[in-house]
């Protein structure tokens, strides 16, 4: 039996109060195992981003419980959650992922600096992941000097470089053309297979969904299917 990285039990999330209340998630039970390459799919407004935000502790549940790497996120303070994410979770967003005033190398190095990784090891890991994402020689460039696809590859390198337990990506290909999106997904899949890195990403692009090993479908905040290919 695979080891569980994320266990969500009966998770609900609503916004607003009274008649204006909106239910974004309804009693979601979802376990993510080590080595998963899972896509969370569904139409706009189905709760994909809310679920990812909750899984990484960016947002709080209204009810239910989330455990990541064996620790419940519900009772952690903002500071504890930040430190927890730093050590255990890599995040990739749709776009504007990078800190514009830092170079590619500094962006990738940033989380390791927060982790107090020694300088020599930082440099070594940065070089390694720059090569892995095919951006060797571009370390001293600023994000604005890179294409959208290259920026997302830097974001993935940043998410992976700190050796997290899981990488969560919220529609990482949404702002890319389909060819670049597919190449990015292929690269993520390669890392999943080579490094046994666990990936959970949301998408509504059928081409991207095809590349997932597992597909969790959300509709109106409910998980309507959880299919392993």
């Amino acid at each position: 039996m695979s080891e569980i990285v994320i266990a969500s039990k009966n998770v609900s999330k609503h916004f607003g109060e009274g008649e204006a209340q909106v239910h974004a998630l309804r009693e979601v039970d979802l376990d993510i195992n080590i080595g998963d390459f899972a896509a969370i799919v569904g139409p706009s407004g189905s709760g994909k981003t809310t679920l990812l935000n909750i899984l990484c502790g960016l947002d709080k549940v209204s009810s239910g419980d989330i455990q990541v790497s064996g620790r419940s996120l519900q009772d952690m303070s903002g500071s504890e959650l930040a430190k927890f994410r730093r050590e255990h979770i890599g995040l990739v967003f749709q776009a504007y992922n990078l800190i514009p005033v830092l170079t590619v190398m500094e962006n990738i190095e940033y989380v390791m600096l927060l982790q107090n990784v020694p300088v020599a090891e930082r440099k070594e890991r940065v070089e390694k992941f720059l090569t892995e994402v095919g951006l060797e020689g571009k370390g001293n460039r600023f994000p604005v000097e890179l294409s959208g696809g290259q920026q997302q590859r830097v974001a993935i390198a940043r998410a992976m470089v700190s050796h997290p337990d899981i990488i969560l990506a919220d529609e990482p290909t949404a702002n890319l053309d389909s060819e670049t999106g597919v190449l990015l997904l292929d690269m993520m899949r390669k890392f999943n297979e080579e490094f046994q890195m666990t990936f959970v990403f949301s998408t509504h692009d059928p081409q991207i969904m095809e590349r997932a090993k597992r597909m969790v479908t959300l509709t109106d905040g409910h998980i309507v299917s959880d299919e392993i290919k």
């Binding site: 903002g78 930040a82 730093r86 050590e87 995040l91 504007y96 990078l98 989380v111």
Partner: peptide, 10 residues
Amino acid sequence: IIKSIGTTPW
């Protein structure tokens, strides 16, 4: 983004 990737509020 900065907060999400592990920078504490402080």
